[in-house]
């Protein structure tokens, strides 16, 4: 990789200031950013490490549900969200592998918005609120396409609020090489309705399967999905799966998620 300056702020305010410099970029767990820098696909002049900012770490429970600090590693979410939001904890515990989960963070994952990442499905299905150093963004407004989000330059995810559903489940079918989601479906049932978010499949990244949401809001059983098909148009086709195959997986995984929720 090209050389850069590493800055290690101790607070969000310091981090925001450090990110104001030309060519600066936030570094969270680095499990995606550093490999892409090795490939010389990214070449920031300055990396601002967010890992040692205490106010951005940890999981706590409050009236807005579960609050997860932006720099909380997956392993911590897997452990600390287990009691309150087991489906979210299970999702975190399936990302990558144990070593990746020690470093990779929820904020990093959501900021990157990889179309095959797991967290976007949880955030969208939970109707989460993404809190940054300067504002709050609803998940429905946050994801704006492949590797694209509502975040401005230098904006940092400090906390993510997850309303806790009555029932939920994440079903992930792994891409055999990368172990990212070939398709991942997060189903969450709230008092006011069911939300179904799909990752790994959409050419524009994570999306909601609204037909399934309507059917499941009326009747939260796998049988309610009978006959619903996903349009393969707009789905990813690559050497790991055709759009038609992904469309099938969405239906199958949604059904299984409902059964297991």
């Amino acid at each position: 990789m090209h050389d850069f300056e590493l800055v290690k702020p101790a607070s969000v305010a310091e981090a925001v200031a450090a990110l104001a410099a030309e060519g600066a970029q936030a570094l969270s767990g680095g499990q995606t950013l550093l490999p892409s820098m090795k490939q010389r696909l990214a070449a920031p002049d300055r990396l601002v490490s967010l890992l040692d900012i205490p106010e951005m770490r940890g999981v706590c429970h409050g009236d807005r549900g579960l609050a997860v600090g932006g720099a909380t590693p997956h392993a911590v979410v897997a452990r600390e969200a287990a009691a309150r939001y087991p489906a979210l904890a299970a999702l975190a515990g399936q990302i990558g592998d144990p070593a990746v989960r020690s470093r990779g963070t929820i904020g990093g994952s959501l900021a990157n918005n990889d179309p095959a990442a797991c967290y976007p499905a949880a955030a969208l299905a939970s109707g989460a609120t993404i809190v940054t150093d300067r504002r709050e963004i609803a998940a429905d407004d946050y994801f704006q396409g492949l590797f694209t989000t509502a975040l401005d330059e230098g904006e940092i995810i400090t906390t993510v609020h997850f309303p806790i559903p009555e029932r939920a489940c994440y079903m992930k079918f792994e891409q055999p090489a990368s172990r990212f989601a070939l398709v991942g479906v997060f189903v969450a049932k709230y008092a006011d309705g069911v939300r179904v978010a799909v990752t790994g499949a959409g050419e524009d990244g994570v999306f909601r399967w609204t037909d399934a949401e309507d059917a499941l809001t009326a009747d939260f059983r796998p049988e309610a999905l009978q006959g619903l098909v996903v349009d393969a148009d707009g789905l990813i086709g690559d050497l790991h799966g055709t759009p038609a195959y992904r469309a099938n997986l969405i239906a199958v995984l949604t059904k299984r998620a409902v059964a297991a929720a």
Partner: peptide
């Protein structure tokens, strides 16, 4: 025999 290939062979 990837899942996608097997599924297409069946369906």
């Amino acid at each position: 025999l990837t899942p996608s290939r097997v599924w297409h062979a069946i369906h």
